[in-house]
Write a protein that binds this DNA or RNA. Structure first.
Lengths: 202, 202
DNA sequence: AATAAGTCGAACAGCACTGTTTGGCTTATG
DNA sequence: CATAAGCCAAACAGTGCTGTTCGACTTATT
């Protein structure tokens, strides 16, 4: 689905880009932002917006897809090989930031998009973490007494909550990554084994 | 604030109760539930609802307050003395259930109520956990390298995420408490000390 | 320069919700 | 049993959004 006609004109592409950007921005601040607001913020008429996106859902989907794409690109640059503990730390360092930005956008997506679509969009990042955790388990670094899906969930939920804490002013972005890594590494440690000390990396 | 006139009549009290109950129920399923829906579900006219609650916010506040009260009562029955690890396990056992029920209600509250009010309502349960964690730290059972507020946050955010997982069908309420406790106990373990094995309690 | 594509403001219709009023009815309570 | 308190349906006004249509204007493309 998409380009019905042969090709889009340059200014149309520019408009579309501005709209999606503005959508990500507005919905990021307020998940209930109206299409009028978004159009205004994009420096574009409301009608133009409807000319490119048939419904609110379609726009939210586009904004979310772009955010995920950007995130995937950023995550591609992260080295997830070597010591699973350090790899996980690197992942957190790069990832919590993305989660922070996409936070409210996700809220909007959860309201407007069917749940299956959300999971579909998240499948990329999720797979990355899953394989990392699986490897860590195979090497004895991570616990095997809890399902992988649960561990993935714990990681993301802690990153999300850190984002909330920052917004509430109870946590500085300075310490966020450290706190998340310290917490998650401990949570992933197999029962009976000692919790890793922070001195290792950096 | 509350009863302006001398006393409320019995049927009025019954209506109010039915409304608040229905509100908790409806908002628990859908945070955007309209006042009409709630009134209908309460078996009461829309006008009656407005007779008792001046605004939507007022009703949400009432529903949330009651849920918190109930939660506090349930938590009062939990023994938080003795081994901090076991005490925390008992807290989770009793608490995750409450979080599960109040989950969507909280979402509604976050939209309608000022953030300060939310924190105020949560101060009861929060204080409970805080003192438990503080005691566990003093006894060397919990880590001291992360702020207490962060640990409290981790606990609640994991309980919340478990509730989400259950609703998504990826986790059974059977295993929820076990997973949460296993995760949180590990996350709270001081660096260098071994993660507690699950065989202990039960 | 011709034309198809794109943009825009204004205005329309439709919807759902909030909050209020009116007037008649039922019921708790003294 | 009298009456004040409470209940309710219907109807109203007001708001803010979505999605569409229209006609005039501008701009990219060939």
């Amino acid at each position: 689905m998409g380009s019905r006609s042969t090709v889009k004109r340059a200014d149309a592409l520019r408009s579309i880009d501005a709209i999606v950007t503005a959508a990500a921005e507005c919905l990021g601040e307020n998940p209930e932002a109206s299409l009028s607001e978004i159009a205004r913020s994009a420096g574009v008429g409301r009608v133009t917006l409807y000319a490119h996106f048939a419904s609110r859902a379609e726009l939210v989907d586009a904004a979310m897809s772009r955010a995920i794409d950007r995130g995937n690109q950023a995550l591609d640059a992260v080295d997830l090989t070597g010591d699973p503990l350090l790899a996980l730390a690197r992942y957190v360092e790069a990832g919590w930031h993305l989660v922070d930005q996409a936070r409210a956008l996700l809220v909007a997506a959860q309201r407007e998009l069917p749940p299956g679509r959300i999971r579909e969009l998240h499948s990329g990042p999720a797979a990355r973490v899953e394989t990392l955790i699986a490897r860590g388990r195979a090497e004895g670094a991570f616990r095997t007494d809890l399902p992988i899906a649960w561990l993935v969930n714990v990681l993301h939920s802690i990153m999300h909550s850190a984002a909330d804490e920052i917004r509430a002013g109870r946590l500085t972005s300075e310490h966020a990554a450290d706190h998340i890594t310290a917490t998650v590494l401990a949570a992933f440690t197999p029962p009976g084994k000692p919790v890793p000390e922070p001195d290792a990396g950096a």
